[in-house]
């Protein structure tokens, strides 16, 4: 595979980031170089590689309530709130 043309501005948009023109130019150059380095993976044969699972045994949670935060603590970090709701600019679908 060859290094794809990375549209940094588009990808940044997916991640809800706005870049300055300078950042766009710089990131395009840097990330293209990094992606080119990553291309080397294409040469490695990966047929039947077992899935990587952490070396732990999973434990599920019993369906038992645990204490919630107080409303005050839950909202203490909110930049804008009113009537115990966290406020954002109007959501339009």
């Amino acid at each position: 595979m060859s290094a794809p043309k990375l549209n940094v501005a588009d990808v940044a948009g997916l991640a809800r980031l706005s870049l300055t023109p300078d950042e766009t130019t710089k990131f395009t150059a840097q990330l293209s170089q990094i992606l080119a380095h990553m291309e080397t993976l294409g040469q490695i044969a990966t047929g039947d590689v077992p899935e990587v699972v952490p070396p732990a045994q999973p434990v599920l949670r019993p369906d038992m309530p645990t204490p919630s935060l107080s409303v005050e603590a839950a909202l203490a970090n909110a930049p804008a709130q009113s009537n115990d709701l966290i406020l954002v600019p109007k959501i339009v679908e």
Binding site: V11, A12, F27
Partner: peptide, 19 residues
């Protein structure tokens, strides 16, 4: 997000989003 994150974080978020 753009004002809050520094350049390395932005770079990695973009890379991670892309891959």
């Amino acid at each position: 997000r753009s004002e809050g994150f520094g350049p390395e974080v932005k770079r990695r978020i973009i890379l991670g989003t892309f891959v």
